[in-house]
Amino acid sequence: MESTRTYGEACATAHALDLIGERWALLVVRELLFGPKRFTDLRAGLPKAGPNRLSRRLRELEELGLVRRRKLPPPGASWVYELTDWGRELEPVLVELGRWGRRSPFRDLSAHISSDAVMLALRDDFGPAVGDHFDATYAIRFGEDHYVVRVTAGSLDIERGDADRPDAAIDTDARTFASLMIGSLGLKEALSSGLVTLSGAPEAFERLLAAFSRPEVASSP
């Protein structure tokens, strides 16, 4: 590890922070939850990490057995990073941290947010009201980052890729989509301003947006 700092405790929580408490480590894990990424893709998701620091974090996570590097078969034949089984066990930790953090009164909602961060929030904040379960497939595209979102019987699944005949296809950027999710931007306004391009059934996308929980912000001191 880059840092030799340790809490020096037998407590499992303290030990876990010794392993993944360095800056950017958990965010690297977040960026790999939906599948492998090239170094350049990780840089795009974590632009403020810096290439040298990101390289160190990846190396440290490899040494810990949380991340591995492998070469894709032809025709891609590029090197990618992916989570190991143990690394993927950090997913519920990130989910709960995100839920807790979304109640913070100090969060800067205008700051950078990665495509994968938005998709993780989309999946974990999804919760249609009882009796409002629906089935639909969505293509959500943030530039080169493409996702397939499938809603089935009240549950939501996300994977990288392109949807075949989606009920609705949305082209926008991660920041705008996050604003739609939290309700600070209306869909009609986003469409009329050109921030969002929507094809397919608008009502299908409206139903998806209506199914997100919006946690109450904690009281500030």
Rank of each mutant, 00 (worst) to 15 (best):
C11I: 10
A204T: 14
S199W: 13
T176F: 08
G45V: 09
E63Y: 12
P92C: 07
L32C: 05
E63P: 00
E203C: 08
E62R: 05
R69P: 01
F142G: 02
R99S: 08
V118E: 07
S213K: 15
G50P: 02
A129N: 09
R70F: 15
P92N: 02
G65F: 05
A178T: 04
V130M: 14
E62Q: 09
T152E: 15
E216L: 15
P36E: 07
R30W: 09
A44D: 07
L32M: 07
R56E: 04
V151H: 06
R99K: 13
F205I: 11
I158L: 06
S219F: 11
L209A: 07
A111I: 03
Y7P: 10
L198W: 10
L61Q: 05
D125I: 09
V95D: 08
I140L: 11
L185N: 01
D162T: 11
L19W: 10
L156K: 00
F106V: 04
L187V: 06
G98L: 15
S55T: 10
S219M: 13
G131F: 04
L191F: 03
K48Q: 12
L208E: 06
E22A: 14
A163C: 01
R68T: 13
D135G: 12
D116N: 14
G154P: 09
N52I: 11
R38M: 11
W100H: 13
A14C: 15
L208P: 09
L42H: 01
R175I: 13
P92L: 04
R102T: 10
M1V: 11
P75Q: 02
H133D: 15
T172M: 08
D145T: 13
T13A: 10
A174N: 00
L94H: 13
V29I: 15
G87W: 03
L198G: 03
V95Q: 02
S104A: 03
E60P: 01
L191K: 01
E89H: 14
R57M: 12
L54K: 05
G87V: 01
V217F: 09
A44V: 07
R107A: 11
